[in-house]
Amino acid sequence: MNFRSWFRPFEILKKEHNIALIVIWVVMVVGYWFVATSGEEKLFPPPEKVIAGLQALYGEGLVVHIASSLGLCLKATLISVVVSLFFAYLSPVPFMRPVAIGLSRMRYLPLTGITFYLAMMMHDARSMQVGVLVIFMSLYFITSLLGVIKDSPQEEIDHARSLKCSRWEVLWEVIVKGRFDYVIEVLRQNLAITWMMLVTVESILVAAGGLGVLIKNSDKFMNHGRIVALQLVILLVGLGIDWILNTTRKSLFRYSKI
């Protein structure tokens, strides 16, 4: 085994070398965690506290809270995908372009101001959570989708035009159908932001459960073991969603090589 190659920039390693590197890093991080939390002074809770926190959380209905967060995420995602696709797909139409670009720019709006108006408009916390998430997800989603549309090669548009496609057919074939795999990829990238925001939204607006509420409660009592356990759970659920979306894209779209 040539270990020198591990330290040479741009070196392409064999699969088993890559796996070995991941294992080494995981062992080092976990080892550091054990060592760093074994003394008197410690910033992070030791592993046994995290495991205890996890057990306590499970006893308090962690699975139900995860399901609640996932449900909220799914609902908000579906609505925002429909809204974002509508505006993004119409952006090649000159009349609609300023609207799509304008919405994309709105991503710089602060969250607090929006929640104030939403609170006045909506009467139940769950709708408000969905509303906040939809608004913010859509703005990021539209921004990414506009990038995908802008990067669609002119050759593909000309190719469709040369096949007697009307302008609406060009939009349908090149952008809508031809870039559908990109929608999943964009969703996958934006879901990381959404997932992060979901927890914040749940903790800002104390509603019926969710991972955000659990974190908020644990935070109040400075229960570090529970906080780190929850962080790990949120990370793993997020990674799981990411994996599902990536696998879906690859299996549904054979031609997709993003």
Partner: peptide, 30 residues
């Protein structure tokens, strides 16, 4: 007019989401 004369660019652009058969069927849709 657009479509009266076929055009093949130097990159041989095709619909990325259509198989060969689907692309040819689409070309004959009219």
């Amino acid at each position: 007019e657009e479509g009266d004369v076929g055009f093949v660019d130097q990159r041989y652009t095709l619909f990325r989401h259509k198989t060969v058969y689907q692309a040819l069927t689409y070309a004959m849709r009219n």
